[in-house]
């Protein structure tokens, strides 16, 4: 059943267009893929001449809320998970995205845009496991 009260297709589409524009800028001007986990992970394996563009991109991401706030109040950002769950989830996301060579941006947005079969498999796997994880937590264990 679709929750119509939370359904926001227009802002989602507009946000998506902006995300795609960011990815387009990075490949067209810098010749790089906008995969966030890869960009951040590369900072932990620093190579000469390969650090500054990563830092600049990450800085842009972190500064986005500052710019947003100049125009409008920040949208709702609701984190229900407690600290132990957040830490566990963060570690899984960190290890998993590096082991699987990508996340929602690198495999999901860029990989699917390039019609990469490898990224299609990765996206299918992390989306399915995401669906299953939420199903187990909310409907089998009854949390939330």
């Amino acid at each position: 059943m679709i929750n119509m009260s939370h359904f926001t297709p227009l802002s989602a589409l507009l946000g998506g267009l902006l995300i795609g524009t960011g990815a387009a800028l990075l490949i067209l001007f810098n010749g790089r893929i906008a995969g966030i986990s890869g960009i951040v992970g590369g900072l932990l394996r620093p190579l000469a001449g390969d650090v500054s563009w990563r830092m600049a991109f990450v800085l842009g991401l972190i500064m986005a809320p500052l710019l947003y706030r100049l125009i409008a109040p920040l949208p709702e950002l609701q984190i229900d998970a407690g600290y132990p769950l957040l830490i566990g989830a963060g570690i899984l996301v960190g290890v998993g995205t590096r082991y699987g060579s990508g996340c929602t941006s690198g495999h999901g947005v860029c990989g699917l845009s390039r019609l990469s079969p490898r990224s299609a498999v990765a996206t299918g796997v992390f989306m399915s496991v995401g669906f299953i994880t939420v199903f187990v937590i909310r409907h089998l264990l009854g949390v939330n």
Binding site: V40, L86, T97, G100, S105, F131
Partner: peptide, 24 residues
């Protein structure tokens, strides 16, 4: 690729946060 993506999907499903949004 598959195991890494499974670990990522689990973490994503637990907290609802992936790397880009985490930084934002």
């Amino acid at each position: 690729l598959v195991i890494g993506s499974m670990l990522f999907g689990t973490g994503w499903g637990l907290a609802g946060i992936c790397p880009g949004p985490a930084l934002v």
